[in-house]
C-alpha cells in the first residue's frame, strides 16, 4: 500500500517535469527537467523490482545525456555573436528570428 502512494507521487512529479521540459522558455531549465524525469523514473524502476535497469537509468538518463545536451547548448549559444546576430558558414549576417 505504501508503494502505491509513493508511485503515485513519483508519477505526479514525472508528469510535471515532463510538462516543464516541453513548455519552459529557457532551454537550460528544460534540459534539467528532462534529467529529473530520468532520475525519478529510475526510482520507479527500483519500486518495480528492477535494480539493474534503475542503475543504468540513473547513470545514463540523468547523468550522461544531460551533459551531452549541455555541450550542444553551449556550442549553439557560443556561435551567436555579441550583437545578437548570427553568423552563418559563408559569412552572411542573419538576424535572430
Amino acid at each position: 500500500m505504501n508503494y502505491l502512494i509513493i508511485s503515485i507521487l513519483l508519477g505526479i512529479i514525472i508528469l510535471i517535469m515532463a510538462g516543464i521540459a516541453i513548455y519552459h522558455k529557457e532551454s537550460l531549465v528544460a534540459i534539467i527537467a528532462t534529467g529529473v524525469v530520468g532520475l525519478f523514473a529510475s526510482v520507479l524502476y527500483l519500486l518495480l523490482a528492477a535494480p539493474d535497469v534503475a542503475m543504468t537509468e540513473a547513470a545514463i538518463g540523468s547523468g550522461l545525456s544531460t551533459i551531452i545536451f549541455f555541450y550542444v547548448l553551449n556550442k549553439i549559444r557560443s556561435d551567436k555573436t555579441k550583437d545578437g546576430s548570427l553568423k552563418t558558414k559563408d559569412g552572411r549576417q542573419k538576424t535572430e528570428v
Binding site: 516541453i22 528544460a30 535497469v53 549553439i76
Partner: peptide
C-alpha cells in the same frame, strides 16, 4: 519548432516506453 525541444520529446518518448516495459514485467 526548435530542434532541441524535438530531441527532448524523443528522450521523453524513450523513457515512457521503458517504464511501460518494466511495468509489464512486474
Amino acid at each position: 519548432k526548435n530542434i532541441i525541444r524535438i530531441i527532448i520529446g524523443f528522450v521523453l518518448f524513450d523513457t515512457g516506453i521503458h517504464i511501460v516495459m518494466v511495468a509489464l514485467a512486474y
